[in-house]
Structure formats: C-alpha cells, structure tokens
Design a binder for these strands. Sequence first.
DNA 1: GCCAACGTTGGC
DNA 2: GCCAACGTTGGC
Length: 155
Amino acid sequence: MSRVRRYWLMKSEPDAFSIDDLQRVGTEPWNGVRNYQARNNMRAMHVGDGVLLYHSSCDVPGIVGTAKIVSDAYPDPSQFDPKSDYFDPKSTREDPRWSLVDVAFERKFKRTLPLEEIKQHADALGEEFALIRRGSRLSVLPVSAAQWKLLLSLE
DNA sequence: GCCAACGTTGGC
DNA sequence: GCCAACGTTGGC
C-alpha cells in the first residue's frame, strides 16, 4: 500500500534553528508549533513527504533548502514540560493538544530563494498559496506538486 | 523598531 | 456568543 507523496513548507527563524543546524543534527523533532492550523498540517504528514525549509525574520527571508518527513505526527513532549517555553498547562497526556513530526535534512540550496523573488511568481503559484497570501503567518503549510516543482526550478 | 494582520483570551 | 484587549508573527 503506497500513498501519494505530499509536500509542505516549514518556517523557522535561523537565529533559533537554521538549515545549518538541521544539517548538523541530521534529524530534528519539530517542536514548539502552537498554532492549530499548523498542527493540523503536521498531523496530515506522512513519512517520505517533502519539505521546503524557509527562513523567516532574517535579512533575506526565503526558501533555503529541502528536508524529508521521517515520522508521522506524535505528541510534542515539550507541552508537558513545565520548564519548557512551550509548556501548555491545559494539555493532558490522555488528550495531547500539540503534535510534531521528525524532520530530516536533505539538501541546502546553493542560494537562498528570496521571498521577494517568489512573489514575482504569484500568478503561477496561485492566490491560495499561504506563503505569499497577504497577512498569512502560517508556519507549516501545504505545497502542491506543481508549486514544489516551480519553486525548486527557481533555485 | 514599526506596524498590519491574525489568533487567543476572557469579561459580559 | 460577542468582541475588545492583548500577544505574536514576520515583512519591511
């Protein structure tokens, strides 16, 4: 039983966790996501799905490389840790509120593909693409096969 | 540092 | 269930 490979885009702030950090550690549990839409997207992920890594809140915001999903979603342990910034007192182990997936480094682009440049392809990418939708702050978002192909061709 | 956009919280 | 207040995101 095979399934269709799906694609996603995941943001991080390079000051906190960059693609170089991911390359160093190899695989990272993507913890700390505390937005329901982003969480639901992670719950829809499966092993083998493709990820575009995006750097936000930095000199040149943009796509910096690719990664792979290497686990299905499971409860984010940091929600249960009172010492963690991501502690959620309203979450229980019986019914965990927040999930994460394990993300493995795949490839770093030769250059950052800047948001500014991505926006120039808004027509081809489509108005519904959350990365360039006005006011969208979603940190984990779906990417279609066509969008994936186009964005990789811009590297 | 500014600020627009958005999500969440909590009083009523 | 409404909505004002507040906190956060993230480009610029």
